[in-house]
Design a protein around this nucleic acid. Structure first.
Length: 489
RNA sequence: GGUCCCAUCGUCUAAUGGUUAGGACACCAGGUUUUCAUCCUGGUAAUCGGGGUUCGAUCCCCCGUGGGAUCACCA
């Protein structure tokens, strides 16, 4: 009867959004939209030790920045709340009670020390570490006695001892597991709070989730989850396990080797559209080979069957390409807004109020637009505009085989030519015109004049063109810089 | 170690029995150009190995090999 499509993103509130999790929400969002269903945000905070204050708020904030919206969640409500697991404890209690009565689960009074000991021995014997089921067949009498004695206990799932469980993954197909290999894992901790394994199954069922989407690391517990649905007599939803995202070495993407938090990428000046385009191509590919795609275009072209099972490596070079592409295609006014915060510090440094003017900033940003890989690059790239006194080696004034001396001679010619251009006519075009007509008439090599001029204005080997820089700098500053280069020794 | 997942250019991937094995990033070369960048053109580069099935395997099956995940009162 149930035709409703409902997916959920269920992060634990540990402080930031991992780039791998972004891929997870993204695909879930895409699938939900593609199937005209809903996407729910659920906070899995059953591990209080790891919980970070304010994490839910920052999660919502960064997801909002990326442009992914939810249909239900703790921040917007919905008909299946509450959406935070620690607010649902009575629901879990009620449900575990059912299973306890039917003996599908059992209380385990084993001490932490005993379990630890047991595991060490198993490992020494090269056996898979697994609970030895000491408490599985305790009599009701024994159990009641221990409870009366106030002994602490956890509740474990009683796995079938033989046979096999077949789990169906939507992208990998059937996966078979021998039941004898399954551990009687913990469902309710001794503090009464459920583990992920119990809470997520109960919630997914009650919240009517149609497609459980999660990372591939959950495959080992997949059969246990299926068995739990069976124990409850519930119909299991569809499962989609997304392949991993690894680092360059093929290992886990972790904080150690650079940025993994979406917040970090945002702060460095990566655009949401680049992040989405890039992550969307991790495990999926459009039929027509056109890789530049907006979220809506991905949704339009996406087919669940197209998803691959191969783990992908996070290639920041390609992310950089997408980011550069989207920066180049940004309307200039939007780009200025994005660059401004990064630029602001820089300008503060020079205390040059005139350079804070909107028109000036806009020109500076426009001239660097095609060079930016990320927004934060704007600071370094445009530093020379805001510095009062340029610092560079005289030698770099020389183009190709010419000497610095020759370059300085040419610069004095450039100086004289520029001097003739009236201040009110100081534009990119007229500067170019003033110089080029002279150089061409005399059949001089343009590089021998324009390279030194450019270096004199920016103090760097690589930069935008000299006419652009000169216009932005203004006539007096341009003349000042060229004069300085001529007198350099 | 047990169990499970995965395997096409360096990377992301397309081609699911018949293709000169395609595209993108990166790289290299050329063009535009005063440098860088952009842009345009071109190029190098891949089916892990061995067996089957088949007229024919990147594709299906098996066995290796390699990589990864997991084996908590963490998620």
């Amino acid at each position: 009867m149930e035709n409703k499509i409902r997916l959920r993103f269920a992060p634990s509130p540990t402080g930031f959004l991992h780039i791998g999790s972004l891929r997870t929400v993204l695909f879930s969002y895409i699938i939900a939209k593609k199937l005209k269903g809903k996407l729910i945000l659920r906070i899995e905070d059953t591990d209080q030790k790891r919980e970070v204050r304010g994490a839910t708020e920052s999660l919502v904030k960064i997801l909002d920045w990326v442009g992914l919206e939810f249909d239900e969640g703790p921040h917007i409500g919905g008909n299946f709340g509450p959406y935070i697991q620690t607010e649902r404890l009575d629901i879990y209690n009620k449900n575990i009670e059912k299973l306890l009565k039917e003996k599908r689960v059992y209380r385990c009074f084993c001490s932490f020390e005993r379990l630890q000991d047991m595991r060490e021995k198993q490992q020494a014997e090269k056996l898979p570490p697994r609970y030895d089921r000491t408490c599985r067949d305790l009599s009701d009498e024994e159990i009641n006695k221990k409870i009366k004695n106030d002994e602490k206990f956890v509740i474990r799932q009683a796995m079938p001892l033989s046979g096999e469980t077949v789990a169906l993954d939507e992208i990998r197909g059937k996966i078979k597991f021998k039941n004898a290999e399954l551990d009687d894992h913990v469902l309710i901790k001794s503090n009464g709070i459920p583990t992920y394994q119990f809470a997520s199954v109960v919630d997914d069922h009650i919240m009517e989730i149609s497609h459980v989407t999660r990372a591939e690391e959950w495959i080992p517990s997949f059969p246990k989850n299926i068995l739990l649905y069976q124990a409850f007599g519930w119909k299991a939803p569809k499962f989609i396990h997304y392949p991993f995202i690894a680092n360059k070495e093929g290992g886990k993407l972790s904080k150690r080797q650079g940025d993994v938090a979406v917040e970090d990428f945002r702060d460095k000046g990566y655009l949401p559209e680049a992040l989405i385009n890039f992550c969307g191509l991790l495990g999926w590919h459009p039929k027509d080979d056109n890789e530049i795609l907006s979220l809506d275009e991905i949704i339009a072209k996406f087919e669940l069957g197209d998803m691959g099972a191969k783990p992908a490596i996070f290639d920041i070079e390609k992310l950089g390409y997408f980011n550069g592409y989207y920066i180049r295609h940004k309307p200039i006014d939007d780009l200025v807004k994005l660059c401004r915060p990064y630029l602001e510090e820089n300008i503060e440094l020079t205390k040059n109020q005139k350079k804070k003017e909107d028109e000036f900033i806009k020109k500076v940003v426009a001239i660097e637009q095609e060079r930016l890989k990320k927004i934060s690059d704007i600071t370094e790239a445009t530093k020379f505009f805001f510095v009062d006194d340029l610092n560079y080696e005289k030698d770099i004034l020389a183009w190709r085989k010419m000497s610095a001396k020759e370059a300085q001679v040419n610069l004095s010619i450039v100086y004289k030519l520029l001097e003739k251009i009236p201040e009110e006519n100081w534009t990119n075009d007229s500067i170019e015109d003033g110089l080029m007509t002279y150089l061409q008439a005399k059949e001089l090599r343009v590089g021998e004049y324009l390279w030194p001029m450019r270096v004199a204005l920016c103090g760097q080997k690589a930069s935008p063109g000299p006419f652009d820089i000169a216009e932005i700098l203004g006539k007096s500053e341009t003349m000042k810089r060229i004069e300085k280069s001529i007198n350099l020794n």
